[in-house]
Design a binder for these strands. Structure first.
Lengths: 208, 208
DNA sequence: CACATTAGTGAACACTTGTACACATCAGTA
DNA sequence: TACTGATGTGTACAAGTGTTCACTAATGTG
């Protein structure tokens, strides 16, 4: 018989969430996962699932919360490493891509959730993106690199930046994790997208 | 007993594809659909499915082909209606949004497929987007609105434009189909994204 | 008109699924 | 120390799943 003990509270909970992520990382779509499948992957009996989650949507929501933590950690790292404003774009894109590589499953889950079938998960991820964009706007304000922009215009710019980077996710996640050449291509293209946007922002309202 | 007759070739095929789209339109994710579910919605016996598709992925691929037709029709309409270059953005975004409203299920399928679980569907949708971007680049070249840009830079700009519009899909599809106010918000925001990008393109390379 | 092909049907299969129930074990607290 | 609630286990079941098979009706071609 399998031993039954609860070493730490929430250990199985974590196992279940990791199992779901692992399946997503293997190419499965979150919406197609079932309770039994997840518990099997976690090495846990199906009924244990209900001790921690009401259903798969609930698990998805809690994954969104963890995703938030991952994103915040990434932002903190970016803030610590990006010192000079002129390297800002390249450094940030680099950090993003390396996170997308390390936490591949998490970011796959994020990309899926944007058009997923749970409205709540969808809204959660959008909310994370909005937060990210507003923090980016604050940083730029602090760096005084966009003083000529109104708050609303700066917000819009950052929104577009975040969206563009998020879309690049589908590029990165679509290529093999060890295809360094293609990864470099994506990195460069994403960086140029952002440069284009910032050139637009720099010249915004000066015309018209 | 139900009558059994084959009035037109491919009638059931169409019924199955429409059934899948209908379920997607109701909020289900394509990856979570099953053969039985689709045939039930189509009012057809499960075995009929195999007369037309090998599996759900196959159905998805054929939906991508039809999606291509929808996109091409949209592009043709845009070309016919956008006469003056200064209204180009607003008109195009308007046409896009009205199509997204009319063919809601199709565009939901597209948004889902970008991060779906079938690599082939994913690649198909990306391919449609690339085609769209390259056609857009051709149009802009013909209009001579971006003569100072190299071909590669124009391609990149159009790529970013298409991505931004595609991302707006998740905005539009997330709101209720009859929420005109929110739809107008999305329309304006998307248009401003594109304006920002084009301002960037107009000033590209003139600096640095 | 005869015939091969295509498209549709229904029954059957072996599995998988979500969920409920009763029970066992642990951790902390009074 | 004895109790209590949280957590984990095993069994069970009805419903749903993908797929195969043999059969039938309609179609288009010779």
């Amino acid at each position: 018989m399998a031993e039954k003990q609860r070493r730490k509270p929430g250990e199985t909970r974590e196992k279940l969430m990791n199992a779901a992520l692992a399946l997503v990382g293997k190419g499965r779509h979150f919406a197609s996962l079932g309770i039994r499948e997840v518990t099997r992957q976690a090495g846990v009996v199906p009924t244990s699932f209900y001790r921690h989650f009401r259903n798969m949507d609930d698990l998805g929501l809690q994954l969104v919360d963890e995703l938030g933590l991952v994103l915040r950690r990434m932002m903190r790292e970016a803030r610590a490493n990006v010192l000079q404003a002129d390297k800002l774009i390249d450094e940030s894109v680099g950090i993003f891509i390396s996170h997308a590589r390390n936490k591949r499953s998490f970011f796959m889950f994020m990309a899926q959730g944007l058009a997923g079938e749970s409205r709540a998960v969808q809204e959660g991820i959008r909310s994370e993106m909005r937060y990210f964009a507003s923090e980016l706007a604050n940083d730029l304000r602090r760096l005084k690199v966009a003083d000529h922009l109104s708050d609303a215009d700066l917000d819009m710019t950052c929104d577009l930046v975040v969206r563009s980077v998020a879309f690049s996710l589908t590029d990165i996640l679509g290529i093999s994790p060890d295809d360094d050449y293609q990864e470099e291509q994506v990195r460069q293209r994403t960086a140029r997208f952002l440069q284009l946007i910032f050139v637009g922002a720099a010249n915004w309202k000066s015309q018209s």
